[in-house]
Design a binder for these strands. Structure first.
Length: 560
RNA sequence: UCCCCGAUGGUGUAAUGGUAACACACCGGUUUUUGGUGCCGUUUUUCCAGGUUCGAGUCCUGGUCGGGGAACCA
């Protein structure tokens, strides 16, 4: 099992990251019975984003890799900010990413009684006490980094008194803020978190699961390690910001003498041109800057899903990003590459014209329709072929015709010849402009013996254009997205709201799509030939009124 | 001021005392009925100073820079 990551003999051995190295060492040493049991512990107070996706891939992926299990645990110790709406969204996102919490689904709130008993145990061991001071007094006594704190006047209460006072807290006899339970550690400790941390506070707030059963709630530090321990988590993986909490995590486990789960921290994911904090994303939603948590411009998993990202692409991305301890900012182009790389191999190619102008084939008989065969995916023969209608009247992309061009122009222009994708080669005849000089219609002649697949014309056009038959095309709305922020580090200078990109969304109406797209399903991503990858918007698409989102453009090598 | 963590091309990640490599990005070439894909190639790298060693990105000491830390948040 220890070398399950190395794959088959002929596969090149991927370098292990530092957590994999630790796990393999632990397995070799027989630690935790040689088992790997991880957990993913979101607080249900917001939607999951791409940063969480990395954490999910790490915790679930490592367990998978070493034949272990993963628990999903909702860390719901603060009823003020949590709700079932978030619980359900989180579940959906993890499942969509392709992970199965085969170790079970749990809630920290399931352990409230157990945690309460642990606290009583600590009191009995003389390691916790009830403190009746205000939050301000406690904060003041904490001292400062480099300056020791001072003991609370309530620090030496007797075990019996502490037990009675804690019981009163539980029974609802204390006002919020009137009393807390604190661990008795060391008010002069170098690590501020070890200076008698508060472990229980009073909150008269209904909890989304336990209702009004409890009026005292454990703090993160008193809940997390113990929950890991209760679930016999061997490797508790979290982000760097919890490094300072590890001594406390271990202190509680040792003081309580419970199963020794072990915490390992790694660097969280940061992406340029976006923000990742739940609080700030919430602000975008609340201020209506975006169309909800699943707006296709959001870095949320639900936003990426609606945008057209595939679970596979996100998993590959998480893998490429790596696991290490130094702070990082990943270039968003790696995310885009991951999607293109996945979709290039899988997405069916179709044709659509976003900014249509008329293309008339003068020498093609009016009223005649010819069905042409075209491959669905040149990268995948098994994707098969389909028929597309061709006729005299077509739609072409306005930007594919220009009057004044240079030698680097591969498209249509006066005197030029181009191939219509999967159809015929056509040569320019003339064009019509409106009173503003805008080209509204282009006229061409086709070369009859240049039909795709049976071309005997010998003509070698420089470019290939996409098109749709005017008679058969359907109308669609297409939404193009650009990055939400115009600055690489939106939080770097001042308010991130000032860094918003005002042109992050453009809505195109009257786009022309080929008839086969009438049967498009939400969840399928298509390549619109030469334009990018597009998928039906799950929110705004109606019957007969399709709305497509562009997930990502094709890489554009044209410098013209 | 104190504690913890980190530092390798533009961005990430490897190299586990023995030739600094891989991916993305960039640039160039080639193929192409997608200016896509594929293929080939160019450019660019160990924070600084000492030390240990036949040999240091790696070990040691000191420094510099960056991140985290004083919520009844997680």
């Amino acid at each position: 099992m220890a070398d399950s990551s190395t794959g088959t003999d002929d596969a090149p051995k991927r370098a292990l990251n530092f957590i994999e190295q630790k796990i393999e060492a632990d397995i070799a040493a027989g630690k935790h019975g040689g088992e790997v049991h991880t957990r993913f512990p979101p607080e249900p107070n917001g939607y999951l984003h791409i940063g969480h996706a990395k954490a999910i891939c790490v915790s679930f992926g490592l367990a998978q890799q070493y034949g272990g299990k993963t628990n999903l645990r909702f860390d719901d110790t603060n009823p003020e900010k949590e709700s079932v709406e978030y619980v359900n969204a989180i579940r959906e996102d993890i499942a969509w990413l392709g992970f199965d919490w085969n170790g079970g689904e749990y809630y920290t709130s399931d352990y409230f009684q157990q945690l309460y008993d642990y606290a009583c145990d600590l009191i009995r061991k003389g390691l916790a006490y009830a403190d009746d001071q205000t939050a301000e007094e406690i904060a003041y006594q904490k001292g400062a980094p480099g300056k020791p704190g001072e003991n609370s006047p309530f620090r030496d209460r007797s075990v019996d008194e502490n037990l009675r006072l804690f019981e009163e807290m539980k029974a609802g006899k204390c006002q919020e803020g009137a009393r807390v339970l604190r661990a008795k550690i060391d008010m002069a400790h170098d690590n501020m978190l070890m200076r008698d941390p508060v472990i229980y506070r009073v909150k008269f707030i209904e909890h989304h699961r336990t209702g009004n059963d409890w009026v005292i709630y454990p703090m993160y530090d008193f809940a997390h390690g113990q929950s890991d321990s209760i679930e016999r988590i061997s490797h508790s993986l979290c982000s760097l910001e919890f490094e300072n909490h590890r001594p406390l995590y271990n202190w509680f486990i040792e003081a309580l003498g419970i199963y020794p789960s072990e915490q390992t921290e790694f660097a969280r994911l940061n992406l340029n041109y976006t923000i990742m904090s739940k609080r700030k994303l919430l602000r975008l939603v609340e201020e209506g800057v975006v169309d909800g948590w699943d707006d296709p411009r959001m870095p949320t998993i639900s936003g990426l899903r609606r945008r057209g990202y595939t679970p596979e692409s996100i998993r590959v991305f998480a893998d490429r990003v790596g696991v290490a301890k130094r702070n990082n900012t990943i270039d968003v182009s790696l995310l885009e590459w991951s999607l293109r790389d996945d979709l290039n191999r899988r997405a069916p190619r179709v044709m659509a014209v976003l900014d249509p102008i008329r293309l008339v084939v003068l020498n093609y008989p009016a009223g005649e329709t010819e069905m042409l065969t075209t491959v669905n995916n040149p990268e995948d023969e098994s994707a098969g072929t389909r028929e597309i209608p061709f006729g005299r009247e077509l739609w072409m992309e306005a930007e594919d015709f220009r009057v004044d061009v240079n030698k680097k122009w591969f498209r249509l222009a006066p005197g030029r010849t181009v191939r219509l994708k999967s159809a015929y080669i056509v040569e320019y005849v003339d064009h019509i402009e409106d009173e503003n000089g805008k080209v509204t219609e282009v006229h061409v002649n086709y070369i009859p013996n240049s039909r795709s697949g049976q071309d005997t014309s010998g003509v070698k056009p420089k470019g290939t254009l996409h098109w749709v038959s005017a008679e058969h095309a359907q109308d669609a709305e297409v939404r193009l997205y650009d990055r939400l922020f115009k600055e690489e580090s939106p939080e770097a200078n001042g308010d991130f709201m000032d860094a918003l990109n005002p042109e992050s969304l453009s809505i195109l109406k009257g786009c022309k799509i080929e008839p086969s797209l009438a049967e498009a399903q939400v969840g399928t991503v298509f390549q619109f030939t030469r334009l990018g990858y597009f998928t039906l918007d799950s929110k705004y698409s109606g019957l007969g009124a399709p709305v497509f989102n562009r997930a990502v453009t094709l890489k554009d090598g044209w410098k013209g």
